[in-house]
């Protein structure tokens, strides 16, 4: 094993009764990489994270974190975790939650106090540090859970949907912190349903569907791999009949998005010309016009839908 590997997963498998939740999944995450783990609901993301963080045991296959077996004390010592739907202790203050976590990781008390103060200030919780977590808002709880994961200054960080259900500010704060940590060389394994988030943050993403890995690549390469998914987004100063739009040569599909229309096509350049002709011959004025490359979301839908059909 070369020593720039942070996470190595070989043929990892987990069944629940007859259900193959994770089916011979293999991949490698390098040290310092920001790795995204995407998939529809029930794809097996959380189950994979739980095996990698030693909460449940795999039925087959192996996984290692920085060369230690996943789930071993040494591996856990180097890992920070933000589990999906996990809670901090509501009957303890935020501060006591952090100090408990520090003790469980064996962090000396003086270091823990210093780091804990820094983290609570960074996440805007410091003024509420002595309130019971029960009284925190959802966003505050989620920021506290990130503090809990970071108190041991872990080399590898697992986050299972850390920003789901948060407002823009809280989500952005968490994303900024993750980027900062990644810039300092931490390896980050992020599960998310937010394609834009994955696109912005991740060096590479893996897509899992029904327990199987269906793609693993840089977001940009995944986007380019889905052809025929270019689109042009246009809005007019007046009402337009969608049938007329669909009749424009080169348009595959028409979608209404609020006050805009999205037209899917293979050749966006030609469509822009056709649209100009279309609006002048119909007495319309274009208010806005944008050409869009396939998004990570398009790639995701294409990859996970294809699997469903094949299955």
């Amino acid at each position: 094993m070369s020593n720039d590997v942070a996470i190595q997963v070989v043929s990892l498998t987990k069944c629940f009764g007859d259900l193959l939740a994770v089916d011979h999944v293999s991949f490698i995450v390098s040290k310092g990489e920001f790795f995204g783990f995407l998939g529809p609901n029930g794809a097996g993301k959380t189950t994979t994270v739980r095996m990698l963080t030693g909460v449940i045991r795999p039925d087959a296959g192996t996984a290692s974190i920085l060369e230690y077996e996943a789930g071993s004390l040494r591996a856990k010592q180097l890992t920070g975790v933000v589990p999906e739907m996990a809670n901090a202790y509501g009957d303890l203050s935020g501060w006591h939650n952090i100090m408990l976590m520090a003790e469980l990781y064996g962090i000396p008390a003086s270091v823990a106090r210093e780091r804990g103060t820094g983290l609570m200030q960074e996440t805007g919780l410091y003024t509420r540090k002595d309130s019971l977590v029960r009284t925190y808002s959802k966003g505050m709880k989620q920021r506290l859970i990130l503090c809990l994961a970071l108190i041991s200054d872990p080399q590898v960080l697992f986050l299972d949907e850390p920003t789901s259900g948060l407002d823009v500010q809280s989500a952005r704060l968490i994303k900024d912190m993750l980027q900062g940590l990644n810039a300092k060389g931490k390896t980050i394994f992020l599960t998310t349903h937010d394609m834009e988030e994955a696109n912005q943050l991740c060096d590479r993403v893996a897509i899992i569907n029904e327990g199987r890995l269906v793609a693993i690549d840089a977001p940009e390469k995944l986007r380019m791999a889905v052809s025929g998914m270019y689109s042009v987004e246009v809005s007019f100063d007046n009402v337009v009949n969608p049938e007329l739009l669909a009749a424009i040569p080169g348009v595959n599909t028409v979608k209404k998005l609020g006050d805009k229309w999205r037209l899917y096509t293979v050749s966006p350049g030609e469509l822009v010309v056709s649209l100009t002709n279309f609006s002048s011959s119909n007495g319309l004025r274009m208010v806005s016009l944008n050409t869009l490359a396939p998004s990570l979301e398009d790639a995701f839908v294409a990859l996970t839908e294809k699997e469903v059909k094949d299955a």
Binding site: R50, T53, G54, V55, L73, R74, K76, Q77, T79, V81, P83, M85, A86, N87, A88, Y89, G90, M101, L104, Y105, G106, I145, L148
Partner: peptide, 14 residues
Amino acid sequence: QARTLERLMSCPVK
């Protein structure tokens, strides 16, 4: 039930 056990189990404690 309170979902605090998972985080305990992911800590470096047996």
